[in-house]
């Protein structure tokens, strides 16, 4: 593994060094450097500190681990691979993600999992350990988002307007959702056995990554949110 001290390089050369490295990379003293690991298709990158926006955008394989918080647009348009964040993530995590997995120990910001989509063997998964901001899973077209709410907070597990425009995939929310308002296009109900079977490998991986007891995580009920239709806007138009 190659170790790079981020504080001794500018952003562009840091990105270039990661690209050029033939081996796994460990970055220390990271402080807001953007575009780390963009488009990587193999290898492992570990980051100490706080990477900047667009961490692992267009990620095409391999894995990224952050020992700290991440900023906005983690895993933007990601196609494959794994991103693990031992802290919180900013807004728009996993924007339009098509494949791969993102695990966040803490909270996620606004628009987590917006427009994630699945295709054939590609099945994107985002697991958020804490709570998330408004517009969770907006325009979701496929894949799975799990919000565990493993944090002490007065607030709801999700912010306002979750799953607006959702037309595919599913969202699983652990704990109380009674105060959350969902839009008309989705069905909200207790997670079925099939929902839980689909989610279980990812919940287990979350527990093993971040040191939670599976029994503790499964100790609260899960709610599943699914779209009513794959074509929610069909009836709105008349040909002219």
């Amino acid at each position: 593994m190659i170790t790079i001290n981020a504080s001794t390089h500018d952003n562009a050369s840091l990105c270039e060094m990661i690209k050029q490295a033939k081996d796994d990379v460990k970055i220390s003293h990271c402080l807001g450097e953007r575009f780390l690991g963009v488009g990587l298709k193999d290898r492992y990158i570990e980051i100490d500190g706080t990477p900047g926006n667009a961490l692992g955008a267009y990620l095409n394989g391999g894995s990224v681990k952050v020992n700290g918080n991440a900023q906005d647009a983690v895993g933007d348009t990601m196609n494959a691979g794994t991103i693990v964040i031992y802290g919180n993530a900013g807004d728009a995590v996993g924007y339009a993600m098509r494949g791969g997995k993102i695990y966040i120990k803490g909270n996620a910001g606004y628009r987590a999992g917006i427009h994630i989509k699945a295709y054939k063997e590609k099945f994107p998964v985002i697991v958020i350990g804490g709570r998330c901001g408004s517009f969770l899973g907006e325009y979701q077209a496929g894949g799975l988002i799990i919000v565990l709410g493993l944090c002490k907070s007065e607030k709801n597990v999700t912010g306002n307007f979750p799953c607006t425009g959702m037309h595919g995939g599913r969202v699983l929310i652990r704990g109380d959702v009674s105060k959350i308002t969902f839009p008309e296009q989705v069905s909200v109900g207790e997670a079925t056995e099939e929902d839980m079977n689909t989610a279980m490998p990812y919940i287990k991986e979350f527990c093993s990554l971040f040191g939670y007891e599976l029994s503790e995580v499964l100790g609260s009920a899960f709610t599943a949110v699914k779209p009513n239709s794959a074509n929610p806007y069909k009836q709105m138009y008349v040909e002219n």
């Binding site: 989509k117 295709y119 037309h167 595919g168």
Partner: peptide
């Protein structure tokens, strides 16, 4: 398109990661 057969292909009105020129700059550079 890499989406399932029969599923609507919806492009949201804005890019929801771009609310400013600074955000646009981020997508340009990513």
């Amino acid at each position: 398109r890499m989406i399932p057969i029969g599923s609507d292909a919806i492009s949201p009105a804005p890019h929801h990661d771009i609310y400013s020129i600074e955000d646009l700059r981020q997508l340009v550079f990513s």
